[in-house]
């Protein structure tokens, strides 16, 4: 759907993006991750044609990005707001028409969305009379109203209250059902696990990590196995071959769980065979690192490298 190839953007004195290439598959939810100042917003602005890359290219739907493509993109920036003195309906209509909708079409669609969010009575109220949460709903509507094929949400959950975060998540999933492609940048790693199919991690203007979420997590798998079992934990402690390192054994209301590190070269089957001699196994799971752990690990090791270099 959208690819960027070796995008470079320099601002006087520092490089905001250094040969960043991403590939956003059609119909996927793409997470753009990275610490503050990594260059996410700059990349998003390039995709929205607010700024242009110094070198490199962006292609949209297989063709180089064109001016008219902005009608097919919906953008909810991190720095977002509305004209405070304008009426809600008028404002939504104005923003929709700037996105190329006709007056009649925009009105029809606004009616649908206002009904859906049950905010029809706000039409003639001024924005400054609305609470922040109410404004967020209006902002969301104006972003999706022209039914864009590509939606870009920059830090969508920052500043949204929990109810609206939930609403937004559901809407994002629904939009994907309707074959829209979604890019969103966020710090909120749990939402990444929940929503994203693909991710790209940017740090210090460079891509550190890119790919499908499941692949990424597998790649960072730390070979830790979680086992649910029945029986005496001591038996495992004393009986298990010393090759396998027991990290911890927990007991709680649900059952007993042991975390065991699989050493290099050992397979799951070997561990299971070993364990079966001492206990009864209920479940066997590979513990995948959370996106949060991966994020911290990757960024820290990258900045470690940087400090060593300098």
């Amino acid at each position: 759907m959208l690819t960027t190839t070796d995008v470079v953007k320099d601002f006087q004195g520092h490089r905001a993006l250094n040969k960043v290439s991403i590939r956003v598959p059609k119909g996927s939810i793409f997470g753009l991750l990275g610490p503050n100042g990594a260059g996410k917003t700059t990349l998003i602005r390039i995709i929205n044609q607010i700024t242009a890359p110094d070198t490199g290219s962006v292609s949209f739907d297989g063709k180089p990005l064109q001016r008219d493509d902005i009608f097919r993109i919906g953008y909810l920036p991190e720095e977002r707001g509305l004209y405070k003195k304008m009426k809600v309906g008028e404002q939504a209509l104005y923003l929709a028409r700037l996105k190329g909708l006709s007056n009649a079409e925009a009105k029809k669609r606004l009616k649908y969305w206002f009904d859906k969010f049950e905010i029809g009575s706000w039409w003639n109220r001024k924005v400054e009379e609305l609470s922040k949460g109410m404004q967020q709903k209006v902002q969301f509507i104006t972003t999706v109203l022209h039914e864009p094929e590509l939606l870009i949400f920059d830090e969508p959950f920052s500043g949204f209250d929990p109810i609206n975060v939930n609403l937004l998540k559901n809407e994002i999933l629904e939009l994907r059902e309707n074959r829209a492609t979604i890019i969103f940048s966020t710090h909120n790693m749990s939402s990444v696990e929940e929503l994203c199919d693909h991710i790209c991690l940017i740090n210090n203007a460079e891509t550190l990590l890119e790919g499908e979420v499941s692949q990424v997590r597998n790649k960072f798998s730390s070979d830790i196995i979680s086992i649910g079992f029945e029986g005496d934990p001591e038996k495992i402690r004393s009986g298990l071959n010393k090759r396998f390192e027991i990290l911890e054994i927990k007991e709680n209301g649900i059952g007993k769980e042991a975390r065991i590190k699989l050493p290099g070269g050992a397979t799951s089957n070997e561990l299971i065979a070993e364990l079966l001699q001492h206990t009864e196994i209920h479940s066997y799971n590979e513990v995948l690192p959370s996106m949060n752990d991966i994020f911290i690990q990757v960024v820290e090791s990258a900045s470690g490298k940087n400090t060593q270099k300098s």
């Binding site: 953008y75 920036p77 720095e79 977002r80 707001g81 004209y83 923003l95 996105k99 902002q139 104006t142």
Partner: peptide, 13 residues
């Protein structure tokens, strides 16, 4: 009011 970025994603500055 931070609306400007929304607008410039639709029109040129």
């Amino acid at each position: 009011s931070r609306i400007v970025e929304v607008i410039v994603s639709s029109v040129r500055p």
